[in-house]
Each structure stands twice: as C-alpha cells, then as structure tokens.
Design a protein around this nucleic acid. Structure first.
Lengths: 327, 327
DNA sequence: TTGTATGCGTTATCAG
DNA sequence: CTGATAACGCATACAA
C-alpha cells in the first residue's frame, strides 16, 4: 500500500499535522523535526496524494482541453504548447478529442465538470451547445466563439486572408478562388473569407468561394468540382495547409504547372508543414503565442483576476512566400 | 457553490446514502424514491464529484501519457487513438510532452504518481530513468524498452526495415544509405537498422548508416554530410517520414532527380503524411492498432488480469510504394 | 427498502 | 513550535 502522511508521521515520530506542515512549508517548524520528517519521507518513498489534497482545497490544477483531434498537426502543435505553458505554471491537462462531434463534445464537457477541472480551453465547437452559455467554469475559446461571455484567442484572420489574397494578386493572378470551411460554423476563421472577398472586390475581381463540408468529410469531390468548373483558375487561397495540399495533388494530376500556371497559398504554417511541404506558401499562425495567451487568460479567470476584457485577442500572422507562389 | 449529495438528499427528502445508491445503481431502491432523487438532481444540476469518489474508491480512471511531443504527427495520431479508446472504456488521459528531456520525464513521472493515475503509457524514454525499474504502477511502453518487466508495443520494425530495403533493391538501387536515430537509445526501432543491414549484406551490398542526434536537434548538417560523402547515392531509407522529407529537400537543392536518380522511402505513414506528401513511399505503421493494444494491455494490468506475457507485441506494417520509389 | 456512522488522505483551525 | 480535531464529498458496512 502507498504510504500516507500518517505513516510518515509514525516513522518520524511526530504528528500528521507536522508532516503536512513540512510538506507545505507552512507555519514554524523546528529544524530537527524538519530533517526527521524529510528522512522519513525518503525512507518510505512518500508522495503526497493530490486527489485528497484537491478534495480538501477544492482545486485540482487541472485544465480540460477540447479540440477536434491531435492528429491534425495544427492542434497537435497548439496542444503541445498549451501543455507546456500550463505545466510551467503548475497546471496539468486532461485531453479530449471531440472529432467535431457535438455529442462527444457535450459528454466531454460533463466529464470535465465531474472531474473538477479548474478551467477549459476549447477549440472545438459545434453550434448549439448550450452548456457553454452558462459557464459555471472558466473557459477560453481558440478560434471559436463559444458564447458571448467567453473570451476568444485567434490569429488575425482578417489580416491573414488579406495578405494571402494580396500576394496572389501581386504575383499576377486574376482568377483567384478561395476554399473555406462551412460558414455556418461561426468562427473567427470566417474573417479569412471576408478579407479575401474584400480584397478581390477592391481590385475589381470576382470572389469565388468553395465551401468544404464539416470536419472529417472527404473533400476531394469539392476540389475536383473547383477545377471542373474553373479550368482557367490561376490562384487558390486555401483556408488551411491540408486543403492546400489536396489542391496541389489534384492540380498535379491535371497537369497544372505550379507555380507557373497555378499559384497556391494555404494557412497555418505548422512545424510539420514546414518540414513536409516547405514549398507551399502559407500564412503562419503564431501558435505558441496563441497558446500562451489562452493559458494566461484562463488562469486569470481561475484566479478571479479577469475583468471581462479583452473578449477577443487577435495575434499577428506571418506571410511565408515560398515556391508555390513564385512568379 | 456546487451541489453535493447532501443537497440532493435534502431536496429529495431522503438520506445521502439513498442518493448515492441511486447514483450507482446499487442495492434495492424504491421506484418512487428513484424518481424523486432524479428530479432533485436535475433541479440542482447535480454532477457527482469524481475527485471525492476517486479518493474513496482509490481509483481515478486516469491514464498518464508521456510522449516527446504532440507536435509530431506520429505521436499526435497515436495519442488521438489512445485517448479515443481509453474514453470508450471509461478512462481519461493526462497528457505530458517530455520533449525527449530526461529531467522532464522524471518530473512527469512523479507528477503522475502524485495524481494517482491508474497507469502510464510512455513512448518517450531517455535511458537511465530508474523510476521505471521499480514500477509500483502499471506501465506500457510504445516503441521503447522501459524496463525488463514492462511490456512493449511496436510495429514490426524488423519486417518494416526489411521491406523498405528490399523495395529499394528491387527498384534497382545499389548504393543505398540508411538514416536512423541514435543507437544508444535502445528502442525496438533499432531493428529497422538491423533489418537494413541484414538485407544489404545478404545482397552483397555495403550497409552505410548515418546516425541522427537525439530528438529536437537540427539534423540538416548530417544530411548534407550524407550527400557530400556519397554523391553517387541511389537510394535512401529514412527511419521516419520527416527525416525523409528533409532528405528530399536537400536532394532537390542538389538537383538530384527523384525518383530517377535517387529513390527514397520513409517510415510511419501518418494521415498527415498521406495528405501532405502523398508522393513519398513509406512503411505505414498500424497506429490505431498500436494504440488499441497498448490501452488493452494497460487496463489488463490495472485490473490485475495480466500474467506477464506477452512482453513484446509486434504489429504488421504496410508497404506504400509511391512516387519516390518509382522505377 | 432506507438511514447512521465511518473513513478515503489531506489541510486548516485552534488549543497547548 | 507542535498536536488533536474537524471537514472536503463520497461510498460502504451495518443497523433499522
């Protein structure tokens, strides 16, 4: 059986209270007793039981993470940073892959409450989860509007969309098409589309946006349709690098030369993307800064130090002008 | 304040014990009281406190996960599946990114013990962590020998290395070079190298292996050296797809035509790789099956149903013969 | 079928 | 400077 405070106390010849005091460096303790207790702890290989501790202090130092899937390098990298920063601040993370499924997200939300997490960072969202409306718990959203009172962290999606579109225009593209996720999901990422449309119109060009199905669906049909309906396309701004990679694949199979005939730019710019497809131009999100801000804001809420603002934080993106947008 | 069993009991007009019984479906309970209790729970929006429950039953249904980083798509995908399967079996996961650092791994190991996790699945390992030697806790390793008593799950690394090497030979390569991680780290992945060497020797070819530094280091120098020292190289078997992508990049910058002049095959075959670099040939690991086996074996240990065998489980790989190994 | 008393391992309060 | 006692929220043995 695992040793508990009482066992340590017995070995050290003191009371459980004293052991607890040594453990938490609380109140005054004699130097001798401190040494005795430390020795006893070492001898028994004692570890304090955080579950009992959590129960008493009513705080777990646990943060719940709800994201679609760690399989996607963007979320993988984001979660890596979140976990890291949280760990540095004494918090642990409970991981949930919602797979974009509303039922799963609801279940996880309940599970996290039962497990008394101190707060939640969520990047998954299927509209209409009323649980977020009455947040009896600190929550921070990443690229997702969860409810009117929940702060959101994201990259500067409008600026990103603007830079991407402007780059294609600057490189001489006229017929430029945008591919985005479902607009019904009201995410800040919709601003990428808005910026694309604004820039196109400003340049007297016609915006055409193809909309993808929700997460997890096979989108190759939509991309095929894009090429069938617009054989003369010169530029594609895909709302993430994975979609961009699918566009590249389809374009190659149709013998479009990239970048001379067709230029492509994506969005995200993960480390994995940089290694696996360095040739793809993209808008790089400041993933580690997003993670930092999210954790910072969540912990502020947990410590009741948050005054309700800012409700929206937009972090600057970085244009990566690589081979797929060469002139 | 969050409602507790006593509050529900008061509203329902019964004793706390009865509420607990309804909650756990234990013993006999009158239909009326059951309804009354359920109503009270709904009215108060009651969620049982799993922390208190865990303390009492001395079980948390928590699994600790220690891996280098979720940023890497292989670990990201593996963790995705592990979390999924665990969730289906009523277990939650606590995520730890050790970044290949021994000090971090030790800290995490202690943290997980303090938090009373029921078991640990670890894919990170820096030699010489004696904590694994006296496992007072169920542990399963993935692609890592942790200690003589800890079971390991991995892909069939030897067969994978064999298939990769044989493919290159079959496609006409003579001068074939292998790139692997540090051999000092005694992982089953070393079998990829062993298989490569065996196959090469069997075909009267000279095996040459370049060794990478440990995780996180910049390996581009090593790859440059490979090309400097072996300009006439015809085939490269990289021990993972990311290394393979770096080889491709360097080869392109030196104007090696792939696959006519140089053929390349990697290892892992994640979903991300399939999307981002479909042209790369690889040995695909059965990631979801590895996850399944690991969780299954861990829970068997937790339930004391494990008899100590098998100590090693090797799951079959799949050769993906794509563009980079075209003849 | 339901209620009372007790303890899971910890910390805070208050007394000594 | 140190110790006894109660409480965190829940589930079990035992009694009614």
């Amino acid at each position: 059986m695992k040793p508990k405070i009482a066992d340590v106390a017995k070995v050290a010849g003191v009371s459980p209270t004293t052991v607890s005091r040594v453990l938490n460096n609380r109140g005054y303790i004699g130097e001798e007793t401190r040494v005795k207790v430390h020795n006893a702890m070492k001898e028994l290989n004692y570890y304090p039981n955080e579950v009992a501790r959590s129960l008493f202090i009513r705080k777990t130092f646990l943060i719940g993470l709800i994201f679609p899937t760690t399989s996607n390098p963007f979320y993988g990298q984001l979660i890596f940073h979140i976990e890291n920063i949280a760990a540095a601040l004494g918090y642990k993370v409970l991981l949930c892959n919602s797979q974009g499924r509303q039922d799963k997200e609801k279940e996880y939300l309940e599970m996290l409450q039962r497990n008394q997490v101190d707060g939640i960072i969520a990047g998954a969202h299927n509209k209409g989860i009323e649980e977020y409306e009455k947040p009896n718990l600190p929550v921070v959203g990443i690229d997702r509007y969860l409810s009117s009172a929940i702060p959101v962290i994201s990259s500067d999606n409008y600026d990103g969309g603007k830079q991407a579109t402007q780059l294609l225009i600057r490189k001489g593209c006229i017929k430029i098409i945008h591919i985005n996720g479902p607009i019904s999901l009201e995410t800040p990422a919709n601003l990428r589309r808005k910026a694309y449309e604004d820039v196109m119109i400003k340049h007297n060009l016609t915006p055409i946006t193809y909309e993808m199905e929700t997460y997890g669906t096979d989108n190759s049909e939509i991309i095929k349709r894009l090429f069938d309906e617009n054989p003369e396309v010169e530029g594609v701004f895909a709302s993430d690098d994975i979609i961009a990679s699918q566009v590249i694949k389809e374009a190659k199979s149709r013998n479009y030369n990239i970048p001379s005939k067709l230029k492509i730019i994506g969005y995200d710019g993960t480390e994995t993307k940089k290694l696996m497809m360095p040739e793809l131009s993209t808008i790089e999100q400041p993933i580690s800064r997003i993670a930092e801000k999210a954790v910072e804001l969540l912990i502020k809420q947990i410590d009741s130090e948050w005054d309700g603002a800012p409700l929206e934080t937009k972090l600057p993106v970085k244009l990566i002008d690589s081979d797929t947008t060469k002139k």
